[in-house]
Write a protein that binds this DNA or RNA. Structure first.
Length: 427
RNA sequence: GGACGGGUGGGUGAGUGGCUAAAACCAGCAGACUGUAAAUCUGCCGCUCCUUGCGGGCUACGGAGGUUCGAAUCCUCCCCCGUCCA
């Protein structure tokens, strides 16, 4: 199977038929015996450590390794839910902090949860607000109890704790909730990173315990026939823990072990891609996954550039998310099979060719570079829409190819071929 | 014909003697963007030379002259634009 074209198979039809023949080691794992809605199946493990899998959630199946577009405020900026479905998106992100501030998690709970609120039938993973501990550094204060944020919207103060984060995520009713963690800056010395590990483990324990408490309260009220206004809008929700540890290998191991002891249905590696070299980032991801149970999904948070995705997959990573395809799209940076294209540039003003001749997405089938450049310069809304559409399609396409490559044992070649083309810069 | 107001770099438009190759914004050119405070941010944006430096030279605030050590800024005349009066 070559990689010279950008065609995407329909999400579900992919994988199966052609793959099952070569799958000797498939097995299904019920991760949480009390939760029949969620399980993870590894279809094949590659010699590199890459895994081809299938994650079943209350809102559909996710082919892994998967890329999850980020929809912070209940929308993947620039793309309608219909477009996401047509692109084959199976899972996307939402954000606890942002949705809590606006429109408010209780409002979303009343409206039936985030899926219904935003009319998204697929799966949702909610980030806990942990990343905002890092990105809103100027607007917050961290203590062992939690984090005081000053709202970036109106300056008001809000106290986010592990418990509060879980309460919000239950109201949102995401399929996968993340523990509230402390994501630290790079570089960070050992002492600082160790502090974040300790705090993150403790917060993970509190998140887990509080989720149990809420679940039991929900059951009790259901059995007594009362309606519980606090009830989760998604009884099938599971929770993933997040490995921290900065760029310190020992701390990464320690963090992973501590979290594994707490027994989560899935694990993430956080605190990466915060300014460190890519190789170091991969090293940390690899060290963390070594410590994680093989039968649970692994998620590297906030990753990455197109050419880096396969590197993480080879570390045994099953899920990734990144703001890059949508944010960069809005800023005119488009990812193509020949490398990055800054569609603002003057050289595209008279260029009638499609953005990426190897891509078969709607944008590349329909519009010229000259038109895309015009839209961007004219500040037209359609620029964001089309650019986002292509970039997300491009990321999903890479993931599809990575999955195929694992299935056919070609992941190593895939990576090098992809790199070679990027380096050749055939724009 | 008269009275005011005004003509500033691609555009809008600050600047009323030196700190001004000239604010700011826009346009233009390029770069950045990794669990989204991002349709954002950063740099460049008269010409030219080189040893690319908070470097040199030249040109520039309608035109021509003048005052001054020094003028976009003050004076004289001229040209053009706007408003009003005849």
């Amino acid at each position: 199977m070559g990689f010279g074209h950008c065609k995407r198979e329909p999400p579900q039809a992919e994988a199966c038929a052609t793959l099952t023949a070569s799958l000797g080691n498939r097995r299904t794992v019920l991760i949480d015996s009390s939760n029949m809605h969620f399980h993870f199946e590894i279809l094949k493990t590659d010699p590199t450590g890459a895994r081809l899998g299938r994650l079943t959630t209350p809102h559909g199946v996710i082919d892994t390794p998967a890329f999850m577009p980020v929809g912070t405020a209940g929308t993947v900026k620039g793309l309608t839910q219909q477009a996401l479905t047509e692109l084959g998106v199976q899972i996307l992100l939402g954000n606890t902090y942002h949705l809590y501030l606006r429109p408010g998690h209780e409002r979303i709970r009343q409206l039936g949860g985030l899926h219904r609120f935003m009319s998204w039938p697929g799966a949702i993973l909610t980030d806990s607000g942990g990343f905002q501990v890092f990105s809103l550094a100027d607007l917050r204060k961290v203590t062992d109890e939690g984090v005081v944020f000053r709202s970036h919207l109106d300056g008001s103060e809000h106290f986010l704790t592990p418990e509060k984060s879980i309460e919000i995520q239950q109201a949102l009713g995401s399929d996968i909730a993340m523990v509230f963690d402390e994501c630290i800056e790079y570089p960070a010395d050992r002492e600082r990173a160790a502090g974040a590990v300790k705090r993150t483990t403790e917060w993970a324990r509190r998140c887990r315990d509080y989720a149990f408490t809420l679940r039991n309260e929900g059951r009790a009220s259901t059995e007594s026939g009362r309606t519980n206004p606090e009830a989760s809008t998604n009884p099938g929700q599971v929770m993933f823990a997040i490995v921290q540890g900065g760029m310190h290998a020992g701390l990464r191991r320690e963090s992973a072990r501590q979290l594994v002891d707490l027994d989560f249905p899935g694990y993430a590696v956080g605190g990466l891609a915060v300014g460190e070299p890519h190789a170091l980032s991969c090293e940390m991801a690899a060290i963390a996954t070594e410590e994680l149970p093989k039968d649970r999904p692994r998620y590297v948070m906030g990753i990455g550039f197109p050419e880096q995705l396969a590197d993480y997959v080879r570390c045994g990573v099953d899920m990734m998310d990144c703001v890059l395809p949508t944010r960069n799209a809005r800023n005119g940076c488009l990812f193509t099979s020949a490398g990055r294209v800054n569609i603002r540039n003057a050289i595209y003003a008279d260029d009638p060719r499609p953005l990426d001749e190897r891509c078969s997405c709607m944008v590349c089938r329909t519009y010229s570079r000259a038109y895309l450049r015009h839209l961007f310069h004219a500040n037209e809304i359609l620029a964001s829409i089309l650019n986002s559409h292509h970039n997300v399609a491009f990321f999903l396409d890479i993931m599809g190819k990575i999955r195929q490559a694992i299935a056919f044992g070609e992941l190593a070649e895939f990576s090098s071929e992809f790199q070679a083309r990027i380096e050749a810069g055939e724009a």
